[in-house]
C-alpha cells in the first residue's frame, strides 16, 4: 500500500504540472473577456475550495463560515491600501495572517463543538462579522470601499486594460492551494487530520494532539482563503460587506469540494471546473429573465449529483482512486 501511495503521489504531481501548464496556455486561445472572466472565477473558487477542504474535508470540521476569512482578506487589503497606502501584496499577507489568527482564536472555543452545533456556530460567527462590517462606519459600512485606480501595474496589483494578470494570479493561487494540500497529505499533519476525522477519541488515545491538529488545519485554511479574498477585492476593484462576506461565499467554497469529492486531493478542482462555469452560464443565459429558471436548473443538478454520486465526481475515475478518496 505504501508503494502505491508513493506512486499515486508522484502521478498526482505530474498530472497537476501538466494541467497547470495547459491552463497557463489557455489565454492564447481564449480571447473573449467573458470567457476569461469565467476562467478566473473558476480558478479562484478551485483555490478557495481546496483551502476549505483542508479544514472541512481532511480534518472533518465542516465550516460554512469561511466567508468570514474571505471578507477579512478583502477588507484588510483594501483598508490598508486606501487608508494607509500599503501595497496590496503586503495587505494580502496581513489579511492572511489576521484570518489565521482569528481562525485559531475562534477554534479555541469552537472545536469543542460537534456536528451540527459546530456548523451552525461557523455560520453564525460569519453572520456576526457581516453585520459588524455593515455597521462599521470607518470601513465604509454597507456602502463599502471603492478601490482607487492607480494605473495598471504588478506592483499595485491592479489591472484595468486586460484581465490576464488576474488569470495568472488565480492560476498561481490555485496551484499553491493544491500543492499545499498535496504536501500536507503525506505529512504528519495529514495523517493526524484523517485520524481526527475518522475517530477523534481513538486518535487522541494514540497520541494525536487532536486540538492542535484542528487548530493547524483552521489556520492554513483561513490563511489561503483570505489570500483569495484579497485577490477578489483587487479583481472587483470594489467591495462591500455583502459582496465579500455574504453567506453565498461560504457555500461556493464548500460546493465544489463536495461535488468533486470532499477530503480528496482532486475533488475541489474537479468540482469547481464543473460547478462554476455551470453557475455562470446558467446565470447569464437563462437567468437574465429574472424568472428563476437558472435556480431551478442549478438546484436540480445539485440534487441529482448528490444522489447519483455520493462520493463526488472523483469516484467516476478508476476504483483505486475512489478507494483513495475514502481512505
Amino acid at each position: 500500500m505504501d508503494r502505491n501511495f508513493a506512486a499515486r503521489r508522484r502521478r498526482d504531481l505530474i498530472v497537476a504540472a501538466v494541467l497547470a501548464a495547459l491552463a497557463a496556455l489557455a489565454p492564447l486561445f481564449v480571447k473573449d473577456v467573458y470567457v476569461q472572466n469565467i476562467l478566473i472565477l473558476t480558478l479562484m473558487y478551485a483555490a478557495l475550495s481546496q483551502s476549505w477542504n483542508i479544514l472541512s474535508g481532511y480534518c472533518g470540521q465542516i465550516s460554512l463560515g469561511h466567508a468570514l476569512y474571505f471578507g477579512i482578506g478583502a477588507y484588510t487589503t483594501e483598508l490598508l491600501f486606501t487608508k494607509f497606502g500599503v501595497l496590496p501584496w503586503f495587505g494580502m499577507l496581513a489579511g492572511g495572517a489576521i484570518a489565521a489568527v482569528i481562525a485559531m482564536g475562534l477554534g479555541y472555543p469552537f472545536f469543542r463543538l460537534r456536528g451540527h452545533y459546530f456548523v451552525i456556530a461557523t455560520i453564525v460567527i460569519a453572520e456576526i462579522g457581516l453585520l459588524l462590517f455593515q455597521n462599521w462606519e470607518w470601513a465604509g459600512a454597507a456602502m463599502g470601499i471603492t478601490i482607487p485606480v492607480r494605473g495598471d501595474s504588478w506592483l499595485k496589483f491592479q489591472f484595468m486594460r486586460s484581465k490576464l494578470p488576474y488569470f495568472y494570479f488565480a492560476l498561481a493561487l490555485c496551484c499553491l492551494a493544491w500543492f499545499v494540500t498535496w504536501w500536507l497529505e503525506d505529512s504528519k499533519w495529514g495523517f493526524w487530520w484523517r485520524a481526527v476525522k475518522d475517530n477523534p477519541e481513538a486518535a487522541e488515545s494514540l497520541g494525536v494532539v487532536v486540538f492542535n491538529s484542528k487548530m493547524g488545519a483552521a489556520a492554513v485554511s483561513a490563511f489561503l482563503v483570505a489570500i483569495g479574498g484579497a485577490f477578489y477585492a483587487q479583481f472587483l476593484a470594489y467591495i462591500d460587506p455583502e459582496s465579500v462576506m455574504g453567506f453565498q461565499f461560504s457555500l461556493l467554497m464548500a460546493l465544489p469540494a463536495v461535488l468533486g469529492g470532499i477530503g480528496t486531493l482532486w475533488g475541489p478542482v474537479l468540482g469547481a471546473a464543473i460547478l462554476i462555469p455551470m453557475t455562470e452560464l446558467t446565470r447569464s443565459f437563462i437567468g437574465g429573465s429574472g424568472r428563476g429558471v437558472d435556480l431551478i436548473v442549478y438546484g436540480t443538478l445539485i440534487v441529482l449529483i448528490a444522489l447519483a454520486l455520493p462520493q463526488g465526481l472523483v469516484s467516476l475515475f478508476s476504483r483505486s482512486k475512489a478507494k483513495g478518496a475514502t481512505r
Binding site: 428563476g292 435556480l295 443538478l301
Partner: peptide, 16 residues
C-alpha cells in the same frame, strides 16, 4: 446537499 439543492429549486420555482 439534496435538501439544499431542493431549497434552490423551490426558490427558483417560486420566482418562476
Amino acid at each position: 446537499f439534496t435538501t439544499f439543492g431542493l431549497a434552490i429549486v423551490l426558490r427558483g420555482l417560486a420566482q418562476f
